[in-house]
Design a protein around this nucleic acid. Structure first.
Lengths: 216, 216
DNA sequence: TTATAATTTGACTCATGGGTTGAACTTTGA
DNA sequence: TCAAAGTTCAACCCATGAGTCAAATTATAA
């Protein structure tokens, strides 16, 4: 890649990030190309030198977000952890990717119906791949007797729903840090899957991550 | 209320429902007033005889949805059930209201940022009331020793996130009925709250609602 | 029946915003 | 230095869709 191409690629990435910011703040429709341009001190005309259409920009947000999530998931899958710990890492990783790339992922979570068919096919494909990898982890846990038998797809949707919702309410000013929250979610959401409780007498529980100042 | 007024009120309700349908299918922006009119065999002009603005229509969707949810919640709160069972009923009721008034509630869940300030204040107020009632139930459970100590608001968001996500993936053709799903969610999401496991030896679990054909 | 009020309509205005274009300007490499 | 390629921009076109309005139609009640 030549210097010029590289610079153009970087600019395209910046445009996608700026678009993600505005899409996530105001929604796909209310964010205008002119605003996106202004954000980067361009004019609308220049933006169109780098992109094909607004729709394309939306697709690239989706695509980038899914790539980040998949990349993170693959790493965890390759870690060789036991199923329960691996699933907890999956949940923590999902939440932390979600929150560190907030704009990008808010777009993916909120505006899939805005994508035209030819684009949404691709994104749905990646989303399916993501879910299938997680399903594999859970099925492995069941096979090994770590997890009890459950409707796997339903459980994945339950977990993803809980996690994806965090972007709607999390505030940095709250009493819990992002890490505390993601750990709490991981423990809370994996516990009902375990075929045996961590403590057979039911007094001590798997997780005690609730910080003092967030109690009750 | 005179006959004429009553008829007008009914028509206004129909318009709100038709709007909810289109808003939930295509999003607030992509649904046009003309389409909403066409749905009811009106013309755009007639619609404006009954409504003030598109924004107002969106608000009425939100408002109607929140009223349904609050009404349902209040009934459960007054039932006098013990905290764990009451919370399960709350989750089941939330999910079933959500799904039976799918369009209306999809609008509330998906397009809050589209609401202008003067409207969103009202809706956020009702949402807070809703969450506070649930928070009361959980705090009561903690006080009575049925639930362990947890960050209540975080748990509510976790539960609401999981439940609200159902609208994104549920299909009538799936292997589980709505009732099975809502029961499964209720059991799954309440279990980690219990201060003692239902069975101290960890072999039999609180819930066995996974139907045979949905297993794994 | 008929005057009055309620309702419906379609043609209209108007603002917005996506996308285009061609000319101007800048960078680069020989 | 200078031509060719890369980049920027302002002005423009055009489709869309919210909201208006005055005239036409219909229902109601005296």
């Amino acid at each position: 890649m030549s210097f010029r191409e590289e610079r153009a690629a970087e600019r395209r990435l910046n445009i996608v990030k700026a678009a993600a910011k505005l899409f996530s703040e105001k929604g796909y429709h209310d964010a205008t190309i002119e605003e996106i341009a202004r954000e980067l001190k361009y004019t609308k005309g220049s933006i169109y030198y780098y992109i094909n259409s607004k729709q394309d920009l939306l697709f690239q947000c989706h695509d980038l977000a899914m790539n980040l999530l998949l990349e993170n998931l693959q790493k965890i899958k390759d870690s060789g952890l036991p199923p329960d710990l691996m699933l907890k890492e999956v949940i923590k990783g999902h939440i932390e990717t979600l929150m560190s790339e907030f704009n990008l992922i808010t777009v993916t979570l909120g505006s899939d119906y805005e994508l035209e068919e030819k684009y949404s096919e691709i994104i749905i494909g990646k989303r399916d791949r993501y879910e299938n990898i997680i399903a594999g982890i859970i099925r492995d846990g069941i096979k090994r007797g770590v997890f009890r038998e459950v409707p796997v797809k339903v459980v994945i949707n339950l977990i993803m729903g809980a996690a994806n919702w965090i972007g709607r309410w999390y505030s940095e000013d709250g009493p819990m840090t992002m890490q505390e929250i993601s750990q709490f979610y991981a423990d809370y959401l994996v516990e009902p899957l375990l075929s045996q409780n961590p403590d057979h007498f039911g007094t001590k529980r798997a997780f005690t991550t609730c910080p003092e100042d967030a109690k009750i």
